[in-house]
Amino acid sequence: METRYLPYILILPVTLFLCLFFLYPFVLVAQQAFWTDSGWSMQNFRDVTGHWKFPISLKNTLYLAAIVVPVQLVLALLMATMVRNMKKGRDLVLYVWTIPLGISDLAAGIIWLAIFEQSGFLNSMLSGLGVVDKPINLLTYQNPGIVFIAIALAEIWRATAIMLVILVAGIGLIPKEYYEAAEVFGASPWKRFTRITLPLLRPSLSTALVIRVILAFEVFAVVQAIGGTLFPVLMSETFNYQFELLNSGAAAAVALIILAISIAFTVLILRLLRVPKGATI
């Protein structure tokens, strides 16, 4: 009967869409990356990784992720536990905390540029407090540390919200009785957090981390807005190869490297936070 085919008809548009705009371009990227004038080769990868900027942009990307993601995780967990017990104003606080969710990385970069640029608010504050007598240019070659901090702060500011939303939703799924039971058995708030919240939150934690880590490797516009060319990352290299150097083979190779790192970390996170069968809520 028709109902047997109905589900397939319903998923057909999505499937076609994904084949056309996901699988097909993916094949094309791979093809571009491995194809040079002389045929199939790893030449593009050798070129890309051999370039002097590659180690720097790889290091920058990884450092940034290594600092930003753990800070966001802790912050998001803290915020999620804070709203859990909140009675008054929970909705308002959650709204404020999730605002950055709707803000693009470019806008976030511009917002933090307003703080860190030479005539920006940080300099204004410092001079107001008498720490500096004239505005200093913070975002320069001389201050790579400050550039890094500014970018990290913008990233933390912007993208903690996505983790927060996932974790708040996850915590909402944990029945209150577990906490009450633990309290009756004498568990302190900290023990309740480490023994109940964290283990039962594993599925949400892994979703949040996977999404966040992938986004961290894709970091681009924030960096572009604040650091410009001062702070090369993998994604900006891709962009440069494509537009400045018009070398789409190299751009594709960097893209595949980003992809490989993303997949490696996704697998790692899913492994580490795997929930044994039957131990779900």
Binding site: P25, Q32, E218, A255, S262, T266
Partner: peptide
């Protein structure tokens, strides 16, 4: 094939999708 389909959907979420814009430009 329901599970396969769900996996495909989840997989796209775990992909740096903007990268695919590069070959799409050609297409």
């Amino acid at each position: 094939g329901k599970e396969v389909f769900r996996m495909l959907i989840l997989l796209t979420r775990a992909f740096p999708l903007p990268l695919l814009a590069l070959p799409l430009a050609v297409m």
